[in-house]
Amino acid sequence: MSSTAPIAEPGGGVGLSPRIFVQRIFAGKTGPVLTVLAALVILWYAGAVYLNAPQQIDRDRRAEIERSVTDFMGATWAQERPVLPAPHQVAAEIWKTTFAMNPTSKRSLVYHGWVTLSSTLTGFGIGVLLGIVLAVGIVYSRTLDRSLMPWIITSQTIPILAIAPMIVVVLGSLDVAPIFAKGTVSAYLAFFPVAVGMVKGLRSPDPMLLDLMRTYSASNWQTLVKLRLPSAMPFLFASLKVAIAISLVGAIVGELPTGARAGLGARLLAGSYYGQTVQIWSALLVAAFMAAILVTIVGFADRLVLKRMGIAE
């Protein structure tokens, strides 16, 4: 179809010819991505039927109900505690616990999401600041570079998240506010990608430019502010995207084992204790939305800053 269509037929591309509209969408990324997402939703519905069927058959036999195929499928998508809840059930639960509920209520996902988000952002801020300061230290001190840098790289291979419960419990017993206890975990996790990325970024300027700064007899501080930091910006934002995502994971895991009563992690744990699958899935999806939004915001800031600096294409 696309090969026979003339590239520039009179009036082509003018107005909203549905055919051209569809062609354009599928030539780019939007069409394929939407198709893949639609396929995922269909797979999800099919999976819900398959996984919930044994439970439903059992229940129908006991209640002596005969169902047609479509009726049966509908029933598997409307169970109280399904093995896999259907997308619309999760969507309804999310709607019910976010928009249709007072956000200060203990059952509102807005409330739990805010608890998680606040410790995520606290930890992210502290971690990023620490990472940048340490990276500057490493770039300017040969001793720090030689002694500390190998450990920072090695520590990337260690499952740091395993320490999360201990940090939260120990800090909790010291009467540290939960937001800071969980924030410590997030900060700890966010710190590493930022430190590593910033070391790379601060070292990225061309040696010629560094020599130029020297011919200007620029001080270390001037070189840092006027040359090294600006050229590290692309590296910084690349690490910030990793850091914000991992901060959120840190905050959620920090809420798991401590009997925390608030937060998305606590919601997951409570759901798994009481077999509330719909609750688990809605907490999970809200966490996913939150991660997507946070990463998008960082990406947006990235483009804005690089555009202002004239680096972006």
Binding site: G31, V33, L37, T277, L284, A287
Partner: peptide
């Protein structure tokens, strides 16, 4: 074209949260 952006996005999500679901299943 369709799967790569989705895969990239999923890598940033807190996938660890599926743990309770997997334990149930």
């Amino acid at each position: 074209r369709g799967l790569l952006p989705v895969g990239n996005m999923v890598s940033a999500l807190p996938i660890i949260g599926i743990a309770p679901i997997m334990v149930m299943w």
